[in-house]
Design a protein around this nucleic acid. Structure first.
Length: 139
DNA sequence: GTTCTCACA
DNA sequence: TGTGAGAA
């Protein structure tokens, strides 16, 4: 499984993302409306965020803290005009899987660790997580 | 229990 | 942006 796929796997429900980013569900949904992120959806309409989405939210959060508004952030992050509905690497979490696997704190840490390790081993760090934000993941 | 959408004092 | 209603 390559990084591209792994980074785009929709894994987290909005609740997890809230903790990861310290953003309110309201804000997260609001940013989605403005095309800043485009999480996948389960058949039940629930949002599923990928690592890429989380990173982008952290990036957005930085700009918010810097006093930028949505309009300014759109330019910074680069909002794909008609990308609001583009199919993203989706994950099968539907009827066929009776119980949606719960993401425990431990599993979450493992996932994040692996993700971070792969980035750390690649000096090029394209869209790396910010050092300061990184600490949030390791309590 | 969690998330979704929609609407508003 | 927050919050509450009503549904899934």
């Amino acid at each position: 499984m390559n990084d591209e796929i792994r980074r785009n796997l929709a894994l987290f429900p909005i609740g997890i993302v809230q903790k990861l980013t310290d953003l309110s569900a309201r804000q997260i949904r609001y940013y989605e409306q403005h095309g800043l992120i485009r999480p996948a959806r389960t058949e039940g309409k629930q949002r599923l965020f990928s690592f890429n989405d989380v990173e982008r939210l952290l990036e957005i959060k930085r700009y918010i803290d810097q006093g930028l508004n949505i309009a300014g952030i759109k330019k910074m992050v680069g909002v794909a005009p008609e990308a609001s509905q583009l199919p993203e690497a989706d994950v099968k979490i539907g009827p066929e899987r009776k119980e949606r696997k719960e993401l425990t704190e431990q599993e979450l840490h493992d996932l994040l660790k692996k993700e971070i390790i792969t980035r750390a081993s690649r000096p090029g760090l394209p869209n790396s997580l910010i050092q300061g934000e990184l600490s949030r993941f390791f309590h």
